[in-house]
Simulated scan of single mutants.
Amino acid sequence: MSLATSVDETFMELVEPLRGELTAHCYRMVGSVHDAEDLVQETYLRAWKAYHNFENRSSVRTWMYQIATNACLSALGSKHRRTLPTGVGQPSGPPTGELAIRQEVAWLEPLPDSVVWQRAAQDPGEEIVSRESVRLAFIAALQHLTPPQRAVLILRDVLAWQASEVAAALDLSVAAVNSSLQRARAHLAKLDPEAEQPAESLDDPHTRQLLEDYVAAFEAYDVDKIIATLKSDAVWEMPPFTAWYQGRQAIHQLISNYCPASGPGDQRMVPVRANGQPAFALYMRGDDGVHRAFQLQQLELRDGRVAHVVAYFDTTLFARFGLPEVLPAG
């Protein structure tokens, strides 16, 4: 074995176990799983080129996070932030209005749980990436911060770095880090007011029953039963469509007016997980009887009901979740 091969193998042994958490880190920064994975590859390339200068003055994990953060900041540059329809700045729309698309908007993407948690931890307390740290509402709120504020808040509040460590990683003064963190926290508190509420446990029997009822209602195309699973002030949004809707009545009208299903069996739901939250791939039956990818629904649960649904109409996301374009008959 050559020296170069030995170095390469040693490098990969050190950094490959970090791939999932680094992907989550880059996803927090950029709001896209596709971009995050590209940035992790860029991080590994930069780290490999610099590995001969790594002198163990910090842990490999800290070193890799520093490289990843700066790769994200370079990539973000002047790019538009990713958002959801609720973040575009317009009020909730009428359920009978036109479904408009703005091509220039870069939409926030869901993060498949399998990307981050490929292997389940024996003890939930041992998980490096917490479910709360990739919760969709938190990621959406982060995108409203400037990229440097995003980096500071994530390094300080998610990764629990010291202010001096953040300052060294980002080439800032400690005073600048503290000032940026204070502004970022204040802004985030307004954007994500539910952050302090405990997440619904997906192992709770009531939660499992709620999700079963939700799926059954869609597969039966029973709009009344769908609405019964929602909170009274539930929010429904559908990127790339720019409008969003709030309240049971509005959502009932929206589904009744625009859903192409006409009866039981037209829709089939396949459970997945995204951002540590329940999600479902919805397949719609065509005139030929074949169920094809239609939308990916991501749910936020609160107070024993569905509080928020993001229905992504980007069917290229199905492949990222390991899902087929077409469901087999049966």
Rank of each mutant, 00 (worst) to 15 (best):
N53L: 10
E21C: 13
Q297I: 11
M269L: 15
S173I: 01
W48K: 12
V7D: 09
A140Y: 10
Y27T: 08
A199C: 09
Y221H: 14
A217G: 05
T62V: 09
D35M: 09
Q66L: 03
I128A: 12
A120D: 13
S262V: 13
R57Q: 12
L159A: 03
L155V: 00
R305W: 10
I128Y: 06
W63Y: 05
V134S: 07
L191T: 08
K49A: 10
Y44N: 01
K231I: 11
R156C: 02
H34S: 12
P324I: 07
I67H: 02
D222W: 09
H187Q: 13
R57L: 11
Q253F: 13
T96I: 08
D288V: 01
G93T: 15
T43Q: 00
T69N: 02
Y312S: 05
R131D: 14
V40E: 03
V60L: 01
A216V: 05
T86C: 04
R208M: 11
E37F: 11
Q295S: 14
W236N: 10
A141T: 07
P198N: 06
S180N: 04
L317P: 00
H34P: 04
S232H: 14
D204V: 09
I139W: 10
F280S: 05
F294K: 07
G97K: 03
G89Y: 04
S92P: 15
H291E: 00
V309A: 06
A184L: 01
P240Y: 06
H291S: 02
Y214N: 12
A160S: 11
Q162C: 02
S2C: 09
R82L: 02
E219M: 08
L282H: 13
L181C: 03
D113K: 06
M1S: 14
L155K: 00
R19G: 08
H144A: 09
S114P: 10
E300Q: 12
M12K: 15
